[in-house]
């Protein structure tokens, strides 16, 4: 799966969690409403959409700072799978 396609699905997942947010791949998601509660929900959305299981050590706000960073993380899981 190409990074662009991953990013597209990540954007859909983020919109599911933050339906009113406006952002691009570099926007810090914290600035558009991401917080310690709803980023776990984003984790669940990503796991369901990509069929992956994100390990506990990767579940930190730092890894979910921007769409680009999330896409990189997801890409690693897809490659690993």
């Amino acid at each position: 799966m190409k990074l662009e396609a991953i990013e597209e699905t990540v954007v859909t997942c983020v919109k599911e969690v933050l339906p009113e947010a406006e952002f691009d791949s570099a926007t810090p998601l914290e600035e558009v409403g991401m917080d310690s509660m709803n980023y776990i929900r984003l984790v669940v959305e990503l796991e369901d959409s990509f069929g992956i299981e994100i390990q506990d050590q990767d579940i930190s706000l730092d890894n979910f700072a921007t769409v680009a960073m999330i896409s990189q993380l997801v890409s690693r899981y897809i490659q690993h799978n």
Partner: peptide, 17 residues
């Protein structure tokens, strides 16, 4: 137990939401 924690950690905010 770590796996269960990971599942419950996800369920918890979903339930609140």
């Amino acid at each position: 137990f770590a796996k269960n924690y990971e599942a419950e950690r996800r369920a918890h905010p979903l339930m609140k939401e």
